[in-house]
Design a protein around this nucleic acid. Structure first.
Lengths: 355, 355
DNA sequence: GTTAGCACTCTCGCGGTGAGAGTGCTAGCG
DNA sequence: CGCTAGCACTCTCACCGCGAGAGTGCTAAC
């Protein structure tokens, strides 16, 4: 395709490109030179605009669905827009309050759902939250509950309030009192470490001391090994898929179907979202940035949430590339901060001390 | 509309109606007299079939999308078909095995997801499982974990392995050892009762003994009251919505959107599904049986799952009225039984004795 | 450099049309 | 009296052509 003429755009070129993008975001229809000439600030005629737009197309910022249609921004244009032309509109106080009010407290899993819903509701796009893989979280407490015969229900609570559970089968029946002792022992000795660290440590310990382990210790380690292997993979909480059905770009069922198929693969979603986990700010994926976005002409706006300096997961929105970035980027940012804060506040008693 | 001529159908009428239904279920297209004449068992000419079909239409079993189109079964016809003409095809051994293999063990919440997925996968419709409202479940254990300051994380485990949790804020900070004692005390005294019963009993107790309660008891009851109020409303686990997008009846986006809107209201879904909780077998809702099915021309095939004699929730499938009932009804039935069994087996140690 | 004018192109909606499918009715047959 | 062949009628749907409208690209003039 045409090479992108980096940074060579004149002030006027930029102004016109910006106009086109803003108009297109609103109207969802190819933008004509005429409409830019009319509504744009600089009082140029349609013909002049046409010249510029032809250039912009040649340079890869615009494209025409067909001859004699208006023009539509490309992914490159959106990136430029977001990087250096956009004027982010801070989240209105009312919405900010609404977010804080709703994201106040409650269990961590409840917070995930609420955050996803807020994202969707306030952006009119689909909201996504990736929950932490349990292995990366810091242990708060572990509990074993006898269930029947040799089956034991193991409940693991992370310091940020996430809970996962698993039924494990032991080699022999263990009396309830002993399970309680083991729970307490494990909680005391491993509290404050990540599950992954704990697992590694247990493995070492097992190999070293296998010979002189007594029965109780063996049981303890057996339980711990099984129990601490909960929740290897992060989950995704999606909300407001129906928001996307209202968008004109999803007016034929084929595309809707492709969208659903793409979202069905949770693992891929997680992978894409988690690209955004590093580096504080909000990241935006458009077009060829990922399979998902290129197949569907979708964008992903996402950011990480964290407690302290430990990133837990990501959250963001997904929708057609044509979206109101000026509004949505601050929104995602705000939600990332608020969720981080909510998680930290709810469980701030003992700051998760790293070993 | 025309009155339904109950039970007045001759053997031939019934045979033809059955043919029409079976053909329509396969083809999704209005059935012509010609095709019935050709593929039907009784060797009648199209003209004769036409006469009968005209009668069936008058009686409310068939309708024409427009003059000179074939005929389509009505909800009444489906009901008749299911009630007295259908020959249920038992779930093939291979599928039965597949179900049992996948629904073997694991936490209760995991089972819910798996069941929903199996329903969807094997029926090519949307699978739904309604999880029990925690209040109706029998307590297995309760655990309080200090979280920060006056916040306490309360974890409630039901005898069937469902877990719910809640962060509660106490009036004063309670030391960890006391929380452990309280957990043990509550688990011991209330194990085997439903949360609802427990709540009522606590309320009575509080009113009676308010005067002579000591501080520890007051704390205990405060914690118990808050903690046992988890999970008032049942949840729904949905899987395979995209299956429905492939159906020809959802070929325009408007209908897709209406469908999603209808399903967004979880509470209504639960209400409809839970109509099926009473009375052992599989229930089928078609057409005017509920808002949901009439708006969308959908059907719901659902049954209850239970442990012992205690119904816990419902499970089933949702899809266009035109569905393969002969296959799907046994399937739902099988999943209901298998899930019940899986839940019972996983937690069969102490049969939940009622007070 | 900017603009007005103009020819050109492409889409989209509209009405007409003909093929095809399916029915309802009637007359004739066993 | 029930069944069937035949036929006219109706309705849908895909196709075609056409004209309006929108928007562009180019050129010539300011």
């Amino acid at each position: 395709m045409a090479d992108v003429k980096q940074g060579k755009l004149s002030a006027r070129d930029r102004e016109i490109l910006k106009d086109v993008i803003l108009t297109y975001i609103l109207s969802a229809e190819p933008v004509s030179s005429r409409s830019v000439s009319k509504h744009g600030k600089l009082g140029l005629s349609a013909a002049s605009i046409r010249n510029v737009m032809a250039d912009l197309e040649e340079w890869g910022y615009l494209r025409q669905p067909h001859t004699s249609a208006g023009r539509v921004p490309t992914a490159v244009a959106y990136h430029l827009f977001i990087g250096s032309m956009m004027e982010a509109r801070a989240v209105p106080a009312k919405e900010r309050l609404y977010i804080q009010e709703n994201l106040k407290a409650g269990g961590a899993d409840e917070l995930m759902g609420t955050a996803s819903h807020l994202l969707s509701e306030l952006s009119s796009q689909m909201g996504i939250v990736v929950t932490p893989a349990m292995g990366e979280t810091v242990l708060k407490a572990v509990d074993f509950i006898p269930v029947s015969g040799r089956k034991v229900l193991c409940i693991v609570v992370s310091s940020t309030g996430f809970i996962d559970n698993k039924v494990i089968e032991t080699e022999e029946e263990i009396p309830r009192e002993e399970l309680v002792r083991i729970s307490n022992y494990l909680t005391d000795s491993f509290c404050g470490q990540t599950l992954r660290e704990i697992r590694e440590r247990l493995l070492r310990q097992m190999n070293e001391e296998r010979a002189q382990m007594d029965r109780v210790l063996a049981r303890t380690i057996e339980l711990a090994r099984s129990g601490f292997s909960v929740g290897e993979t992060p989950g995704v909480v999606v909300d407001g898929a129906s928001m996307l059905l209202a968008k004109p770009e999803l007016s034929d069922v084929q595309r809707v179907r492709r969208m659903f198929d793409a979202f069905a693969d949770k693992a891929r979603l997680v992978k894409i979202l988690n690209q955004c986990i590093q580096g504080g700010g909000v990241r935006v994926l458009i077009g060829e940035d990922s399979e998902l976005t290129s197949e569907l002409d979708f964008s992903v706006v996402a950011t990480a949430y964290a407690v302290g300096d430990r990133p837990l997961g990501t959250l963001g929105i997904v929708g057609p590339s044509r979206m109101d970035y000026e509004k949505v980027i601050p929104l995602v940012s705000c939600l990332g901060e608020t969720l981080s804060q909510a998680l930290a506040e709810a469980f701030s008693g003992e700051p998760p001390e790293r070993r």
